[in-house]
Amino acid sequence: MIFPGATVRVTNVDDTYYRFEGLVQRVSDGKAAVLFENGNWDKLVTFRLSELEAVK
């Protein structure tokens, strides 16, 4: 189960963010908004829950 605050990895091989890890900001309607941070940039991207896996 994916909840806000969880760290997730993108599993969709066709996505630009494949294998990126980010922090879930919100979850609704089968989608999750994931925040990616890297140095001087932040990006908030929405994914279907089926495209994400929780990082242990």
Score class of each variant (00 low, 15 high):
1 M>R: 11
1 M>A: 13
1 M>N: 12
1 M>F: 11
2 I>K: 02
2 I>P: 03
2 I>Y: 04
3 F>R: 11
3 F>I: 12
4 P>K: 08
4 P>I: 10
5 G>R: 02
6 A>G: 07
7 T>K: 13
7 T>N: 06
7 T>M: 12
8 V>Q: 00
8 V>E: 01
8 V>R: 00
9 R>E: 03
9 R>G: 02
10 V>D: 01
10 V>Q: 00
11 T>Y: 03
11 T>A: 06
11 T>E: 03
12 N>H: 05
12 N>Y: 05
13 V>R: 12
14 D>V: 08
14 D>H: 14
14 D>K: 12
14 D>L: 14
14 D>Q: 11
15 D>M: 05
16 T>K: 15
16 T>C: 10
17 Y>A: 03
18 Y>E: 01
20 F>E: 07
21 E>W: 07
21 E>H: 09
21 E>V: 14
24 V>G: 00
24 V>A: 03
25 Q>Y: 09
25 Q>E: 07
27 V>W: 03
28 S>F: 15
29 D>Q: 08
29 D>F: 07
29 D>S: 07
29 D>T: 05
30 G>R: 04
30 G>S: 05
31 K>V: 13
31 K>N: 09
32 A>M: 02
32 A>F: 03
33 A>K: 07
33 A>G: 05
34 V>M: 01
34 V>C: 03
35 L>Q: 07
35 L>Y: 12
35 L>A: 07
35 L>K: 08
36 F>Q: 00
36 F>Y: 02
36 F>H: 01
36 F>S: 00
37 E>V: 14
38 N>M: 14
38 N>P: 08
39 G>K: 09
39 G>S: 10
40 N>V: 11
41 W>P: 12
43 K>P: 05
43 K>V: 14
43 K>R: 12
45 V>L: 07
45 V>Q: 06
46 T>F: 12
46 T>G: 04
46 T>N: 08
47 F>T: 00
47 F>D: 01
48 R>Y: 14
48 R>L: 14
48 R>A: 12
49 L>S: 02
49 L>D: 03
49 L>Y: 05
49 L>W: 05
50 S>D: 14
50 S>M: 06
50 S>K: 05
51 E>G: 03
51 E>V: 05
51 E>Y: 06
52 L>I: 09
52 L>G: 00
53 E>D: 05
54 A>E: 09
55 V>H: 04
56 K>V: 14
